[in-house]
Amino acid sequence: MGLKVGDKIPFFTAKDSRGDDFDSHFLIGHKPVVIYFYPKDDTPGCTTQACGFRDQYQDFKEVGAEVIGISSDGLESHQRFSSKYKLPFLLLSDENKKIRNLFGVPSRIFGLLPGRVTYVADKNGVIQMVFNGIFAAKHIPKALEVVKQLIS
């Protein structure tokens, strides 16, 4: 069973798309955060989703939120994907699926395809929204709506 509204985001570490070590202690519990899990770099749906977050990234930043994308792709794949589409937010590499399992992100299509789930947590690290949907473009407006509600 995965994380749900009201749960606290668990702490985790990973390599980010710049090759740096990411420690969630420095972000979770300090500001609102949008963490989205996606299946694979540079595929049509995942590119749509990443570019959607890119195009509205300033809207998230203006309300004090940070966006983080996570997939099981490796560092080099994330660097190419981030550079190709000029993604201003971090992509985290979860090659061993440890973070995906920590969050309880379900797989799709008989367990063959990693799921697409977006979590929005408030500045205390408490999950305010979980959106599990295959339509990549729908994640961005839903996440932004919840983040804006957190500051009003």
Rank of each mutant, 00 (worst) to 15 (best):
S72I: 06
N96R: 14
L90P: 10
K142H: 15
Y57T: 06
I9M: 04
G69V: 03
K98S: 10
V120F: 01
L144T: 05
I151M: 11
M129C: 06
D73Y: 07
T118D: 04
I127E: 06
F89E: 00
F131Y: 15
K8N: 14
D21E: 15
D55H: 05
Y85K: 10
F11D: 15
F37R: 00
G104L: 00
L102W: 02
I9W: 00
K31F: 07
I140R: 09
A65Q: 05
D20V: 13
F81I: 09
K142D: 14
T47E: 12
H78W: 12
S152H: 15
D94W: 01
A137M: 14
F110G: 08
Q128P: 07
G125N: 07
Y119H: 09
D7Q: 05
R116K: 10
V5K: 12
V146R: 02
A50F: 05
S71R: 08
F103W: 02
I134A: 13
V146Q: 06
G19H: 12
G29A: 12
G2P: 11
K148Q: 10
M1P: 08
A136W: 01
D41M: 08
V67R: 00
R54E: 05
T47Y: 14
L90C: 12
P44I: 12
R18Q: 14
A143V: 04
Y85R: 09
D55I: 07
S93W: 01
V34M: 01
L27W: 07
V126E: 14
G74H: 07
L113N: 08
R100L: 01
L87I: 10
A50D: 05
F81R: 06
T48V: 14
F103H: 02
